[in-house]
Design a protein around this nucleic acid. Structure first.
Lengths: 357, 357
DNA sequence: CTGTTAGCGCATTCAT
DNA sequence: ATGAATGCGCTAACAG
């Protein structure tokens, strides 16, 4: 017979240490102490079935005394719906503001559903994505929210078929049909260009990430579309791609402005690129001469001088929407897959109002 | 007999939908298809025991064909060490830079240990802390890293005794003995004050959070200690506490500077307080007259003008250290509890070099 | 090297 | 309203 935890003071002898932990009480222990069956303990814990007040009382006392904490893994292993109360959230980098804010928004919705969130960073690494998705399904998460690093997501079909819903954020699914929640990237980029054009600019540069990144491609599309609609030429010398860090963006900005056909305004299609461009402008002492509109708001954008005008994404809304879609499917909803667009918003500050010169 | 997944094309009939998922293959299915025992499948998967090449081959093919993914919950339920490959990370707010950076650092170490991280926000809410700790232990996490919101952490003793190690970050444990990893808060604050004094300041104000927050108390202690050691009076009119948001910090700054005994320098003991103070200074047009040193670095601190001097914490190091301590204990290490100090670093930029006037 | 039996902790099905 | 038996998917302890 195995030793039962007593709830009272430990018997004399060696103190428990980390290496010989006190065994956690199980339902059997509770049942034995309360003098009832295991099933009755289960009933008291899960509610549902009717239980007499007396039995409930006895069981509750035993639970208290033994500090019993039901093992959820065992529970969901046996239970018919198999729900684990765990979801996975796989983003680019939990440390960056976009991912971190999204994480928080998803956590809040999950919390209301009694669900814990496995958060992971993909680092634009397809293999890491595969590993983390697998790690998640091995633990039978109830669902996955993902901003994928891979280009083809067909491999997720089997998970979806096995009953694990997947919702995409920030990037659209390829190779499978699934719910996804995206910012209006093209429209937001268009708004940025129109704002600069409104202030008299014609030579507007695009500084962005590699076009293999879908959001970057969408924002470029918004830029070129707006330029065309305005009757402005898209000068290839003013389009710089492949920028993903502040350093490269700063260098590109400096090169652009010292070239033979300099722009009078910059549209920077991403956070770090914006910061790099602003840094370069400050270095050149020209931050009040060249207009800037950035995609993505960032903390302190309104403390810089000039204050930086941006197209802001509603990141909490993206996260909350994705989480709601996911929990809907976890609950059994099965409507056709939805594509949700979360509007961006032009936040007019100062840097976009600088006139051409 | 239950229906076996075939691995081949699905039989005719209604297509599988989200509501009637295809059952995931189990070891039994794999064993049946490979014509071996369940235990042999387990051996192939877990390595360890010697297995003939032929058997390994047959099993591997069956696993492939059925897309078998072992259920880790069932595995750790049965296995003797009970390891789940899950830890909990409970921080103040996953969306703020400190928590987000810590999260990422912990994730990286966990990833190397094949472990997933439940990340949660406590929001300075003791009840939320209790709920999240309980949610974590119900899922039998292998360990917990926590920056607690409660004042007394004695309730964690039972978890530690039950074999779930706990490591504290950013705040020291009270009511139990446990590993903890803290920045050198008092020393960092002292460095800030000494730097300002070096530049001629004597009337140095302290702007900080409520002293019930231990880090705030430590930083105040560093401030007063340094002032005393310098032979400078600690003027109570220059000590403002209870500041936790930018708005309040800005208001306090404005009030301080328009009072009858204004400071010539500010030591702001937290991120948001620093930003609030800088905002207020800019609003008054006095950002080049009043010196500032802040505790905690923040993005773009070096893009502001003047660039903001700060005492920076080494957040990735805090996270990595905490994670290493935790995984050590999970692996069975049981040394006396350690208190780790992670040094802060004075990042001299411009705002601390402004002379008194 | 391989298989059989038992049981992790719990919910389910069926009995009473 | 309560309990006994069964099994979720897997590994441990023992066979052979």
């Amino acid at each position: 017979m195995r030793e039962l935890p007593t709830g009272g003071p430990p018997p004399s002898g060696p103190r428990p240490t980390g290496r010989s932990p006190v065994r956690r009480a199980t339902m059997r222990d509770v049942a034995a102490l309360a003098g009832v069956s295991v099933k009755s303990v289960s009933r008291v814990i899960n509610g549902g079935d009717a239980v007499s007040a007396d039995l409930r009382e006895k069981v509750s006392r035993a639970i208290e005394r033994l500090d019993f904490q039901p093992n959820l893994a065992a529970s969901s292993l046996r239970r018919s719906d198999g729900v684990t109360g765990q979801i996975a959230l796989l983003l680019e980098d939990l440390a960056n503001p976009f991912s971190a804010t999204l994480n928080r928004a998803v956590e809040d919705v999950a919390h209301r559903h009694g669900t814990l969130v496995f958060a992971g960073s993909l680092e634009e690494d397809g293999n890491r994505e595969l590993a983390l998705v697998r790690a998640s399904t091995l633990r039978r998460v109830d669902g996955i929210i993902i901003a994928p690093a891979t280009r083809d997501h067909g491999y997720l079909n089997r998970e979806v078929r096995a009953g694990t819903p997947v919702v995409f954020v920030d990037r659209a699914p390829r190779g499978l049909s699934a719910d996804h929640v995206l910012s209006t990237n093209a429209e937001g980029a268009r708004d940025a260009v129109l704002h600069l054009a409104d202030n008299g600019h014609e030579r507007i540069a695009y500084l962005g990430d590699h076009p293999s990144i879908p959001t970057a491609a969408d924002r470029l599309r918004g830029y070129t579309g707006a330029m065309r609609d305005l009757g402005l030429a898209v000068d290839p010398r003013l389009v710089v791609q492949g920028l993903s860090a502040t350093g490269a963006a700063a260098a590109a900005t400096t090169a652009l402005l010292s070239g033979d056909a300099p722009p009078t305004a910059l549209f920077t299609s991403q956070n770090l690129v914006t910061i790099g461009a602003v840094t370069a402008l400050q270095g050149l002492g020209r931050q009040r001469e060249v207009a800037v509109v950035g995609f993505d708001d960032f903390p302190l954008a309104d403390l810089l001088s000039p204050k930086v005008t941006v197209v802001a994404q509603d990141v909490p809304e993206i996260g909350a929407t994705a989480a709601r879609l996911l929990f809907g499917r976890i609950a059994g909803d099965d409507p056709p897959h939805r594509a949700c667009s979360v509007p961006t918003r032009l936040v007019v500050r100062e840097s976009g109002l600088i006139p051409p010169r």
